[in-house]
Nucleic acid binder design. Sequence first.
DNA 1: TGCATATTATTTGTCGACATAAAATATGCG
DNA 2: CGCATATTTTATGTCGACAAATAATATGCA
Lengths: 234, 234
Amino acid sequence: MEDRDGNRPAERKRGSGVKRVYDILRDEILELALPPGSPVDEVQLAERFGMSRTPIREALVRLAGEGLVETLPNRSTMVSNIDVLNLNTFFDAITLMYRVTTRLAAENRSAADLDRIRALQATYAQTVAAQDALGMIAVNREFHAAIAKAGRNPYYHSLMVRLLDDGRRLLRLYYQSFDDRLPEQYVHEHEEIIDAIARRDVEAADRLARVHADQIVGQIQRLFATDNRQHPVL
Amino acid sequence: MEDRDGNRPAERKRGSGVKRVYDILRDEILELALPPGSPVDEVQLAERFGMSRTPIREALVRLAGEGLVETLPNRSTMVSNIDVLNLNTFFDAITLMYRVTTRLAAENRSAADLDRIRALQATYAQTVAAQDALGMIAVNREFHAAIAKAGRNPYYHSLMVRLLDDGRRLLRLYYQSFDDRLPEQYVHEHEEIIDAIARRDVEAADRLARVHADQIVGQIQRLFATDNRQHPVL
DNA sequence: TGCATATTATTTGTCGACATAAAATATGCG
DNA sequence: CGCATATTTTATGTCGACAAATAATATGCA
């Protein structure tokens, strides 16, 4: 008997259970396939993945550690809400992290880092050309995560990844409601950032990252401004 | 029958298990009672706390999420090492977070925040006067965590807490080896930071936080310099 | 009928046990 | 005697079940 993710119980290797559940749930949360606020039932997931509640629980604990789900004691865990009211703290933090990680990438990148970043940028350009909003959102996250990794500061990297994930949910919310054209200018800005990192120009990397961050923040802010006008909060 | 932490199984409330184990283990790791690299045995902990392995495992998963323990697949989990080689990334990040959180505290603090910060500073001064190194280390962490909280940016706050915890292990390592006098000047620097936050002087808060960070970084660097001289790495 | 209380139902937290993977030890062959 | 292989040991990953806490429902009284 196969579960709906296409793996027979017997085929699963010991220890792969939690990681699989964690990866799938994480992706579904970031893609908004599991919408914010929706309840997460352990037995339901256990049935779905064809396994016991124990590994499900471990995956949920890890997701809770990243703030992607929230657990009420003795009561249901639910997908974390996107806190629209505190968006400014998000904007503040992601702008700073864009700058710091890009700076450090210009300082510390290896040749291999640069290859990885360029490969992701190529994929990013393809998704934009294809008007593939979902792909673009996912690849954009990988692009900036790769830059953060090239900066070689694990503290900044982990915060950046968390911010990018939250941002991915925000953007997903955006392109779910509005189907306007994708911003081609981001591709160009990415290219400029790569150039600065390639020639180890720290100040240029900082400045370009700041501009890029302001662009993205501005776009999200405009989204919520129009969104508020169309769906006023009561 | 009582376990060695003084609680009978019957007295424990449902759901309090993981939190207790998590808190105690976390504290022991930060105090170096569990030294870096030491193995963490689940059944041993289960016996010690008088409970099953399940809640122990959940606590360990959460600690792993914070990077305090590392889990090898199918093999023992161990207390994370203090990465002396990558200290510069720590110094870089904590300096930036000192500045950012103190800035934001000056902007966003409430009166209640200020009270909490001042109370912690009073305790801090007491520990320094009493030459209580361990108490000083712990309260110092709480002091700066309270400032970060007053800044009201959860992203910065969580990173700051993580950095402070790593720093607490570093300092603990220091005052374990060397019993020289405790730095009174930190008390004064704290006072100046509080004043800046109280009068909402953002720029002064930033400048003072930077000086404070440089002091601490410099002290830890001197420690490791002397430590290397006395115990050369082979 | 409306509200307070009691009962049931559902879901989580914890448990003890089994299965499996890796390490430690023992065995056998050259 | 040394090394490759087999066996035992130890600790983890997973399971199914029970107990407790909360929500949902039913009951009783005014």
